[in-house]
């Protein structure tokens, strides 16, 4: 018995048709254009851009990041050009890449989230909205809306009412259990789930006895958070039927495949882009090789294939 040489990698994440299950994590790939010189972005399953709110936002003071063993703590603070700036400066080039564009959105009020969603729904070239209710780096907005299932669901429902685009809430990893969040998001009309965002973290300069980050605290990302993320993806997949876009610490195909086995439909490469911009393409190739080696014809066979006895 032989299987066809090239297994199918195409997936559908809540209405977003992707040629393969690999996108990039918001905030680690700019607005797509920055990395276009460094890898063939047309090969990605989708491009997910940095968080956008209604108006331009300056972000946090410096320093905004610090390297830690196995990862990175950042407090960029969602600096961005605002909806109009994004549409004018970046969307035209992004469209030319010919891959689905997922826009990560945030707001300081529920109404702002909904307004951003509505504005982005009026322009062509956007495939879906990832709703950031989990950024640890801004005081108002972000994680303030993601800390309990009902508040989070309120944001999702408000966005849902204002957009026909696929709505993908992005959930925080610092919760006691993912199940209630996944169910609340599903009931509020989410088309898929994105998890996880960074873990709240702090690094202290012991000589100065001061926080290293100007924002005092930041979000931990990178290889060190991967097992935490796998557990959340597994729990979410047990709780709801929604497709899951999984991220946290992918460095090679191996970690991405773990996410798929745990129940994810697609994955996003984040911090690893900074270290090796070719990572997403290596992950795509690695998933294909894995499927061939395990004689699977479709990546869908991998999703949720975890054997638990």
């Amino acid at each position: 018995m032989t299987t066809s040489a090239s297994p199918s990698l195409a997936v559908n994440v809540g209405g977003i048709a992707m040629q393969n299950p690999v996108t990039v994590a918001s905030g680690t790939f700019g607005y797509g254009v920055e990395y276009a010189d460094w890898l063939d972005v047309r090969r990605l399953g989708a491009i997910t851009v940095k968080g956008i709110r209604l108006e331009a936002w300056p972000g946090n003071p410096l320093p905004r990041h610090v390297e830690v063993p196995g990862g990175l703590v950042n407090a960029i603070g969602l600096q961005g050009p605002g909806v109009a700036g994004f549409i004018a400066q970046y969307l035209p080039r992004l469209r030319e890449f010919g891959v689905p564009v997922i826009v990560n959105i945030w707001g300081t009020t529920v109404e702002e989230y909904a307004e951003v969603a509505a504005r982005l729904s009026d322009v062509p070239g956007i495939a879906g909205l990832e709703v950031n209710v989990s950024c640890p780096n801004v005081k108002a907005g972000g994680s303030a809306f993601g800390a309990d299932p009902a508040t989070m669901a309120g944001v999702v429902a408000a966005v849902r009412r204002r957009t026909p685009l696929p709505v993908i809430p992005k959930l925080a990893p610092n919760v006691p259990a993912m199940g209630p969040f996944a169910r609340a998001a599903a009931e509020a009309g989410a088309d898929a789930l994105s998890l996880v965002n960074t873990l709240p973290a702090m690094v202290i300069d012991i000589e100065r006895r001061r926080p290293v980050l100007a924002n005092r605290v930041g979000g931990l990302s990178g290889a060190c958070i991967h097992p935490v993320a796998v557990k959340h993806v597994y729990d979410a997949a047990q709780a709801v039927k929604l497709p899951i876009l999984a991220m946290g610490g992918i460095q090679e195909a191996r970690e991405a495949i773990e996410f798929l086995i745990a129940g994810a439909t697609a994955v996003a490469v984040g911090t690893a882009n900074f270290i090796d911009p070719s990572t997403p393409l290596r992950v795509i190739d690695g998933i294909r090789d894995y499927l061939v080696r395990h004689q699977m014809r479709d990546v869908a066979q991998l999703t949720g294939s975890l054997a638990v006895s």
């Binding site: 905030g27 680690t28 790939f29 700019g30 920055e34 990395y35 010189d37 460094w38 940095k50 972000g59 905004r64 990041h65 990175l72 950042n74 960029i76 600096q79 882009n273 900074f274 911009p277």
Partner: peptide
């Protein structure tokens, strides 16, 4: 710096 190419805003 983190990315070195203008993507991360660090």
């Amino acid at each position: 710096m983190v990315c070195g190419i203008g993507a991360c805003l660090a």
